[in-house]
Simulated assay, not measured.
Amino acid sequence: MPDRLEFEITEGVLMIGKSYIDDALCELHELGVKLSMDDFGTGYSSLSYLRQYSFDVLKIDRSFINGINVKREDRNLVTATIAMAHSLGLSVVAEGVETREQLDLLEELGCDIAQGFYFSKPISAKELISFKYTESP
């Protein structure tokens, strides 16, 4: 069931510009594997990559999430990124969510998924099996 797999790739890898990367991403997409652009906003040609490849998910880099509640510029960039991604039919993941305030604002802005230490520190596969999320105070 390839549709249950998601392959993340950073802009840095795409910037290398090797044809085998293009071929591999096309083959993965044809198999039904979801493609995710990781660390969006940290490279130089993000928008052209969104046109060039069949991405399903866009992951907003944590550097934009860190200041989302205190810097208007960060909030505006995240707002625009979410709107742009949704207009292209992409799901949006916010990386590096550490506070309830960040999560609340991301939900308000229409972000689809959030990940970060707010939910849990990194854990092993064995720990994941018995993991139960509890809301932080």
Rank of each mutant, 00 (worst) to 15 (best):
T42Y: 08
V78L: 11
L128P: 03
K126A: 15
V57H: 01
E98V: 03
G116R: 05
G116K: 04
S87A: 11
F40C: 07
D61C: 04
L103M: 10
S45H: 10
D38Y: 01
D3N: 13
K59Q: 08
D23G: 07
K126L: 15
R51W: 02
G41N: 11
F119A: 00
S87I: 10
A83H: 14
F117W: 14
A114V: 04
S130C: 09
R75G: 00
I16E: 14
L105S: 01
N66G: 00
E127V: 00
S63Y: 03
T42R: 10
L109I: 08
V70P: 00
S130A: 14
L103S: 06
R4V: 01
E108K: 10
Y20C: 01
K71E: 10
D104I: 08
I21N: 04
T134H: 09
S136P: 03
H29P: 04
V97D: 07
Y53H: 02
G116T: 01
T10Q: 04
S36W: 02
S91H: 11
K126Y: 04
N69E: 10
L25A: 08
E11A: 05
Q102E: 09
S19D: 11
S120I: 06
C26L: 08
E30C: 01
S130Y: 11
L105R: 02
T79D: 11
L109E: 04
D38T: 09
S124E: 02
R51I: 02
R51N: 05
I123Q: 06
L5C: 12
V13L: 15
D22C: 00
I129S: 12
L105P: 00
S91R: 15
L58W: 07
L77G: 02
D56L: 03
L90R: 09
R75H: 13
A80Y: 05
C111N: 07
R72C: 09
A24R: 07
V57K: 14
L109V: 02
I9M: 05
S130E: 13
D39W: 02
R100L: 15
D22S: 12
Q115N: 05
T79M: 09
D38S: 06
V70F: 09
G17P: 03
M1C: 06
H29V: 00
G17F: 02
L35S: 10
D23N: 12
G17N: 06
A85E: 11
L35K: 05
N69K: 13
D22A: 09
P137M: 10
E98Q: 12
F64A: 03
R75C: 12
E107D: 15
Q115H: 02
E8S: 08
E107V: 09
S19W: 01
Y49N: 03
L25M: 14
V13Q: 02
K59F: 04
Y118F: 13
H29F: 02
S46Q: 01
N69M: 14
I21G: 07
R75K: 14
D112W: 05
